[in-house]
């Protein structure tokens, strides 16, 4: 049994760690892997293009929806449940479903079917966080703003969005990480990206290639997380950070 592997197939040979590390380093050091359509820069670029586009599309759909629902407080539960379906649907199935649709629309293989899988993944965290962030703003703040004569748009722009910003951005971070990780699937519909290394690595039993692809995807996901954390520091108003950091004794009536 142990010699034939699971279900009688030959499992991957467990490589000696040192040999494996040397193979990976050799793979990375090979100048051929840094040029051309299958080079690391190209694949990273493809992966980033897919991820950024998918995140932008998710934001374009989810932010207005989340803001409208959160501001009015209506239909939130329904929308969040619908959005969560996006989380429940297997991305692989979505890509498979998207193929005939994309062909039918003349959008071709690759990029657009991948978007079809990635955008539903980005929607739920952004819609949910935006809605919850707006609904959990202190009602006194809203009342004071309205009582001073803010129109609904002023209220949203000057009060609700800035106060809700940290939670909204946390949702965007979740969406970004999920999208970067899942963009790997683009490879199976010829969309390129780092998934290419993983798919090809598996097919060719080229474990160095597979490993480099996986590590690069992980690094990109971490990079997205860090970039958005930096963005959060830049855009979240100082007073909100004070408020978040200040213990309750500061806000309690004196």
């Amino acid at each position: 049994m142990h010699s034939t592997g699971f279900l009688g197939l030959n499992g991957p040979r467990a490589p000696d760690p040192m040999t494996f590390a040397a193979a990976v380093l050799a793979w990375i050091a090979d100048p051929a892997h840094w040029v051309g359509f299958d080079g690391i820069p190209t694949r990273v670029g493809e992966h980033l293009t897919m991820s950024v586009t998918a995140l932008a599309l998710s934001l374009a759909i989810a932010l207005p929806v989340g803001l409208a629902l959160g501001h009015t407080g209506k239909g939130g539960a329904v929308a969040i449940n619908i959005a969560n379906v996006g989380r429940a649907l297997p991305s692989l199935a979505l890509i498979a479903l998207a193929l005939p649709v994309a062909f039918g629309l003349g959008l071709g293989l690759g990029f657009w079917p991948t978007m079809f899988a990635l955008v539903p993944l980005g929607l739920p965290p952004i819609i949910t966080n935006t809605y919850v962030a707006l609904r959990s703003i202190d009602p006194d703040l809203i009342e004071a703003a309205r009582g001073m004569g803010m129109r609904e748009w002023d209220l949203l722009r000057r009060v609700e969005i800035p106060v809700a910003a940290p939670v909204i951005i946390a949702g965007v971070r979740n969406a970004a990480v999920a999208i970067v990780a899942t963009a790997t699937l683009g490879a199976i519909v010829a969309s390129g990206g780092l998934g290419r290394y993983i798919v090809d690595g598996l097919a060719r039993q080229d474990q160095a290639r597979l490993f480099v692809g996986a590590v690069l995807v992980a690094l990109l996901a971490i990079g997205a997380e860090l970039a958005l954390a930096l963005f959060e520091r830049l855009v979240v108003p100082v007073g909100i950070r004070h408020a978040a950091r200040a213990p309750d004794t500061w806000s309690a009536p004196r």
Binding site: D138, D140, A144, M148, M150, V159, P237, G239, I240
Partner: peptide, 22 residues
């Protein structure tokens, strides 16, 4: 209503100062 409110001062117990503004 909005124009009206801008001409009326309004103070509530919880103050409702905007935390993100100085």
């Amino acid at each position: 209503a909005v124009e009206l409110r801008r001409r009326i001062g309004y103070v509530i117990q919880q103050v409702g100062l905007f935390p993100h503004q100085t």
